[in-house]
Design a binder for these strands. Structure first.
Lengths: 134, 134
DNA sequence: CAGCATCCCAGTGGATACTG
DNA sequence: CAGTATCCACTGGGATGCTG
Protein backbone atom coordinates (compact mmCIF):
# COMPACT_ATOMS: atom_id res chain seq x y z
CA UNK A 1 0.00 0.00 0.00
CA UNK A 2 1.14 3.55 -0.51
CA UNK A 3 1.89 5.78 2.41
CA UNK A 4 -0.24 8.87 2.90
CA UNK A 5 1.91 11.46 1.17
CA UNK A 6 1.01 14.23 3.54
CA UNK A 7 2.60 12.59 6.58
CA UNK A 8 6.22 12.72 5.45
CA UNK A 9 8.31 15.74 4.52
CA UNK A 10 7.57 16.94 1.03
CA UNK A 11 10.21 16.90 -1.64
CA UNK A 12 10.75 20.14 -3.50
CA UNK A 13 8.69 19.30 -6.57
CA UNK A 14 5.99 17.79 -4.42
CA UNK A 15 5.76 20.89 -2.34
CA UNK A 16 5.34 22.99 -5.42
CA UNK A 17 2.94 20.55 -7.01
CA UNK A 18 0.88 20.55 -3.83
CA UNK A 19 0.29 24.26 -4.19
CA UNK A 20 2.76 25.29 -1.54
CA UNK A 21 4.15 28.01 -3.75
CA UNK A 22 2.23 30.63 -1.87
CA UNK A 23 2.85 31.93 1.60
CA UNK A 24 0.79 29.30 3.36
CA UNK A 25 3.94 27.25 3.35
CA UNK A 26 6.82 26.43 5.68
CA UNK A 27 9.36 26.85 2.94
CA UNK A 28 8.54 30.46 2.32
CA UNK A 29 8.63 31.04 6.01
CA UNK A 30 12.04 29.48 6.42
CA UNK A 31 13.39 31.07 3.27
CA UNK A 32 12.38 34.47 4.55
CA UNK A 33 14.40 34.02 7.68
CA UNK A 34 17.33 32.48 5.87
CA UNK A 35 17.23 35.20 3.32
CA UNK A 36 17.53 38.14 5.62
CA UNK A 37 20.85 39.75 5.96
CA UNK A 38 22.02 38.57 9.36
CA UNK A 39 20.03 35.58 10.65
CA UNK A 40 22.17 32.81 9.24
CA UNK A 41 25.39 34.58 10.08
CA UNK A 42 24.25 34.75 13.68
CA UNK A 43 23.16 31.14 13.68
CA UNK A 44 26.50 29.88 12.40
CA UNK A 45 28.35 32.13 14.80
CA UNK A 46 26.35 30.74 17.71
CA UNK A 47 27.00 27.32 16.23
CA UNK A 48 30.53 27.69 17.53
CA UNK A 49 29.17 28.05 21.05
CA UNK A 50 27.10 30.36 23.28
CA UNK A 51 27.97 33.99 23.00
CA UNK A 52 27.32 37.27 24.77
CA UNK A 53 25.83 40.26 23.05
CA UNK A 54 29.05 42.19 22.80
CA UNK A 55 30.95 39.11 21.66
CA UNK A 56 28.46 38.67 18.83
CA UNK A 57 28.90 42.27 17.85
CA UNK A 58 32.63 41.71 17.67
CA UNK A 59 32.19 38.51 15.68
CA UNK A 60 29.96 40.26 13.14
CA UNK A 61 32.03 43.35 12.48
CA UNK A 62 29.65 45.23 10.25
CA UNK A 63 26.34 44.65 11.99
CA UNK A 64 24.64 47.50 13.75
CA UNK A 65 23.43 46.90 17.29
CA UNK A 66 19.94 47.67 16.08
CA UNK A 67 20.01 44.80 13.59
CA UNK A 68 21.78 42.51 16.03
CA UNK A 69 19.11 43.02 18.66
CA UNK A 70 16.29 42.74 16.19
CA UNK A 71 17.57 39.64 14.45
CA UNK A 72 18.28 38.00 17.79
CA UNK A 73 14.70 38.69 18.86
CA UNK A 74 13.36 37.18 15.65
CA UNK A 75 15.50 34.08 16.06
CA UNK A 76 14.42 33.78 19.67
CA UNK A 77 10.79 34.16 18.68
CA UNK A 78 11.19 31.36 16.18
CA UNK A 79 12.71 29.15 18.85
CA UNK A 80 16.10 28.92 17.21
CA UNK A 81 18.00 30.93 19.78
CA UNK A 82 17.79 31.03 23.57
CA UNK A 83 18.42 34.14 25.63
CA UNK A 84 19.76 33.83 29.16
CA UNK A 85 19.99 36.91 31.37
CA UNK A 86 22.41 36.95 34.30
CA UNK A 87 21.36 39.69 36.72
CA UNK A 88 24.87 40.84 37.43
CA UNK A 89 26.09 44.41 37.45
CA UNK A 90 26.56 45.33 34.72
CA UNK A 91 24.03 42.94 33.24
CA UNK A 92 25.24 40.16 30.99
CA UNK A 93 23.17 38.24 28.47
CA UNK A 94 24.15 35.04 26.82
CA UNK A 95 22.72 33.76 23.57
CA UNK A 96 22.88 30.18 22.42
CA UNK A 97 21.30 27.88 19.90
CA UNK A 98 18.34 25.82 20.99
CA UNK A 99 18.13 22.18 19.87
CA UNK A 100 15.97 23.44 17.01
CA UNK A 101 18.61 25.98 16.10
CA UNK A 102 21.30 23.33 16.24
CA UNK A 103 19.26 21.13 13.94
CA UNK A 104 19.43 23.84 11.32
CA UNK A 105 23.22 23.73 11.14
CA UNK A 106 23.58 20.58 9.02
CA UNK A 107 21.15 21.67 6.29
CA UNK A 108 22.82 25.02 6.31
CA UNK A 109 26.24 23.43 6.01
CA UNK A 110 25.09 21.57 2.92
CA UNK A 111 24.09 24.86 1.39
CA UNK A 112 27.35 26.49 2.35
CA UNK A 113 29.26 23.69 0.74
CA UNK A 114 27.33 24.19 -2.44
CA UNK A 115 27.97 27.90 -2.27
CA UNK A 116 31.69 27.43 -1.89
CA UNK A 117 31.85 24.79 -4.58
CA UNK A 118 29.77 26.82 -7.04
CA UNK A 119 31.01 30.28 -6.43
CA UNK A 120 33.62 30.22 -9.15
CA UNK A 121 31.15 28.89 -11.70
CA UNK A 122 28.72 31.62 -10.78
CA UNK A 123 31.34 34.32 -11.10
CA UNK A 124 32.33 33.01 -14.51
CA UNK A 125 28.70 32.90 -15.62
CA UNK A 126 28.17 36.46 -14.48
CA UNK A 127 31.27 37.71 -16.23
CA UNK A 128 30.16 36.01 -19.43
CA UNK A 129 26.64 37.37 -19.17
CA UNK A 130 27.80 40.88 -18.45
CA UNK A 131 30.33 40.75 -21.30
CA UNK A 132 27.58 40.01 -23.82
CA UNK A 133 25.69 43.05 -22.73
CA UNK A 134 28.52 45.29 -23.98
CA UNK B 1 51.60 17.30 6.77
CA UNK B 2 48.33 19.22 7.08
CA UNK B 3 46.37 20.16 4.01
CA UNK B 4 46.09 23.82 3.15
CA UNK B 5 42.68 24.60 4.60
CA UNK B 6 41.82 27.07 1.87
CA UNK B 7 41.70 24.45 -0.88
CA UNK B 8 38.64 22.57 0.28
CA UNK B 9 35.12 23.87 0.88
CA UNK B 10 34.84 25.66 4.18
CA UNK B 11 32.57 24.42 6.90
CA UNK B 12 30.21 26.93 8.37
CA UNK B 13 32.25 27.80 11.46
CA UNK B 14 35.43 27.87 9.39
CA UNK B 15 33.92 30.27 6.94
CA UNK B 16 32.95 32.59 9.73
CA UNK B 17 36.23 32.17 11.52
CA UNK B 18 38.06 32.95 8.30
CA UNK B 19 36.42 36.36 8.17
CA UNK B 20 33.93 35.45 5.49
CA UNK B 21 31.13 37.13 7.39
CA UNK B 22 31.28 40.12 5.07
CA UNK B 23 30.19 40.35 1.50
CA UNK B 24 33.43 39.13 0.04
CA UNK B 25 32.01 35.69 0.50
CA UNK B 26 30.17 33.08 -1.57
CA UNK B 27 27.73 32.37 1.19
CA UNK B 28 26.36 35.86 1.32
CA UNK B 29 26.11 35.82 -2.40
CA UNK B 30 24.16 32.58 -2.49
CA UNK B 31 22.03 33.48 0.50
CA UNK B 32 21.02 36.69 -1.20
CA UNK B 33 19.73 34.82 -4.20
CA UNK B 34 18.09 32.13 -2.13
CA UNK B 35 16.51 34.68 0.08
CA UNK B 36 14.73 36.66 -2.54
CA UNK B 37 11.07 36.08 -2.98
CA UNK B 38 10.95 34.08 -6.20
CA UNK B 39 14.32 32.60 -7.17
CA UNK B 40 14.03 29.29 -5.39
CA UNK B 41 10.42 28.85 -6.36
CA UNK B 42 11.43 29.22 -9.99
CA UNK B 43 14.36 26.87 -9.56
CA UNK B 44 12.25 24.12 -8.07
CA UNK B 45 9.56 24.64 -10.67
CA UNK B 46 12.12 24.31 -13.44
CA UNK B 47 13.44 21.30 -11.55
CA UNK B 48 10.36 19.49 -12.81
CA UNK B 49 11.44 20.16 -16.38
CA UNK B 50 11.95 22.96 -18.92
CA UNK B 51 9.21 25.49 -19.05
CA UNK B 52 8.02 28.36 -21.21
CA UNK B 53 7.48 31.84 -19.88
CA UNK B 54 3.73 31.64 -19.80
CA UNK B 55 3.82 28.19 -18.25
CA UNK B 56 5.99 29.51 -15.46
CA UNK B 57 3.58 32.34 -14.91
CA UNK B 58 0.77 29.84 -14.56
CA UNK B 59 2.85 27.65 -12.22
CA UNK B 60 3.62 30.62 -9.94
CA UNK B 61 0.13 32.06 -9.60
CA UNK B 62 0.95 35.19 -7.67
CA UNK B 63 4.10 36.38 -9.39
CA UNK B 64 4.00 39.49 -11.52
CA UNK B 65 5.51 39.27 -14.97
CA UNK B 66 7.91 41.98 -13.97
CA UNK B 67 9.36 39.87 -11.18
CA UNK B 68 9.27 36.72 -13.29
CA UNK B 69 11.31 38.34 -16.03
CA UNK B 70 13.70 39.97 -13.61
CA UNK B 71 14.29 36.88 -11.49
CA UNK B 72 14.76 34.76 -14.60
CA UNK B 73 17.40 37.22 -15.82
CA UNK B 74 19.21 37.09 -12.51
CA UNK B 75 19.19 33.31 -12.50
CA UNK B 76 20.39 33.28 -16.07
CA UNK B 77 23.15 35.71 -15.23
CA UNK B 78 24.27 33.46 -12.40
CA UNK B 79 24.38 30.50 -14.75
CA UNK B 80 21.61 28.61 -12.99
CA UNK B 81 19.03 28.91 -15.73
CA UNK B 82 19.33 28.67 -19.52
CA UNK B 83 17.16 30.64 -21.92
CA UNK B 84 16.39 29.23 -25.35
CA UNK B 85 14.58 31.40 -27.88
CA UNK B 86 12.69 29.75 -30.74
CA UNK B 87 12.17 32.33 -33.46
CA UNK B 88 8.65 31.25 -34.27
CA UNK B 89 5.69 33.53 -34.69
CA UNK B 90 4.66 34.36 -32.12
CA UNK B 91 8.01 33.91 -30.38
CA UNK B 92 8.42 31.22 -27.76
CA UNK B 93 11.07 31.09 -25.09
CA UNK B 94 11.96 28.06 -23.05
CA UNK B 95 13.71 28.17 -19.71
CA UNK B 96 15.53 25.26 -18.15
CA UNK B 97 18.00 24.54 -15.39
CA UNK B 98 21.66 24.38 -16.31
CA UNK B 99 23.79 21.63 -14.75
CA UNK B 100 24.76 24.20 -12.14
CA UNK B 101 21.12 24.92 -11.48
CA UNK B 102 20.37 21.22 -11.21
CA UNK B 103 23.19 20.82 -8.72
CA UNK B 104 21.42 23.25 -6.45
CA UNK B 105 18.34 21.07 -6.13
CA UNK B 106 19.69 18.54 -3.62
CA UNK B 107 21.01 21.13 -1.13
CA UNK B 108 17.74 22.93 -1.50
CA UNK B 109 15.78 19.75 -0.88
CA UNK B 110 17.65 19.26 2.39
CA UNK B 111 16.60 22.69 3.48
CA UNK B 112 13.01 22.10 2.44
CA UNK B 113 12.95 18.92 4.47
CA UNK B 114 14.17 20.81 7.49
CA UNK B 115 11.56 23.47 6.90
CA UNK B 116 8.75 20.95 6.71
CA UNK B 117 10.00 19.05 9.72
CA UNK B 118 10.51 22.16 11.84
CA UNK B 119 7.58 24.27 10.88
CA UNK B 120 5.37 23.09 13.68
CA UNK B 121 8.09 23.67 16.27
CA UNK B 122 8.61 27.17 14.94
CA UNK B 123 4.92 27.96 15.06
CA UNK B 124 4.71 26.73 18.63
CA UNK B 125 7.75 28.79 19.61
CA UNK B 126 6.24 31.88 18.05
CA UNK B 127 2.93 31.39 19.78
CA UNK B 128 4.73 30.97 23.10
CA UNK B 129 6.89 34.03 22.57
CA UNK B 130 3.98 36.18 21.53
CA UNK B 131 1.90 35.00 24.47
CA UNK B 132 4.53 36.19 26.96
CA UNK B 133 4.40 39.65 25.49
CA UNK B 134 0.80 40.06 26.61
C1' DC C 1 3.85 35.40 -26.56
C1' DA C 2 7.27 37.43 -24.03
C1' DG C 3 8.70 40.98 -22.65
C1' DC C 4 10.18 46.46 -21.27
C1' DA C 5 9.04 51.07 -19.10
C1' DT C 6 7.11 53.75 -15.55
C1' DC C 7 5.28 54.83 -11.16
C1' DC C 8 4.85 54.01 -6.49
C1' DC C 9 4.63 51.99 -1.94
C1' DA C 10 6.28 49.19 2.13
C1' DG C 11 9.61 47.00 4.33
C1' DT C 12 14.60 46.37 5.45
C1' DG C 13 18.31 47.93 7.29
C1' DG C 14 21.91 51.75 8.45
C1' DA C 15 23.46 55.87 11.58
C1' DT C 16 23.10 58.14 15.61
C1' DA C 17 21.85 59.32 20.22
C1' DC C 18 20.06 58.10 24.63
C1' DT C 19 19.14 54.73 28.99
C1' DG C 20 18.55 51.04 32.97
C1' DC D 1 26.79 45.98 29.06
C1' DA D 2 22.85 45.48 26.53
C1' DG D 3 19.88 47.40 24.88
C1' DT D 4 15.71 51.28 23.06
C1' DA D 5 14.25 55.19 20.24
C1' DT D 6 14.29 58.07 16.08
C1' DC D 7 15.13 59.25 11.73
C1' DC D 8 16.28 58.21 7.08
C1' DA D 9 17.87 56.08 2.60
C1' DC D 10 17.60 52.34 -0.34
C1' DT D 11 15.57 48.77 -2.84
C1' DG D 12 12.49 44.87 -3.50
C1' DG D 13 8.59 44.23 -5.46
C1' DG D 14 3.53 45.15 -7.00
C1' DA D 15 0.28 47.50 -10.57
C1' DT D 16 -0.39 49.15 -14.87
C1' DG D 17 0.25 50.11 -19.67
C1' DC D 18 2.78 49.63 -24.06
C1' DT D 19 5.49 46.83 -27.88
C1' DG D 20 8.12 43.59 -31.40
Amino acid sequence: MNMPAARRPLTVPEAVAAGFSLDNCPIRDVLNRIGDKWSMLIVVTLGAGPCRFSALKRALPDISQRMLTQTLRDLQRDGLVARAVFPTVPPSVEYSLTPLGLSLLPPLAVLVEWANASHDAIRVARAGYDAEGV
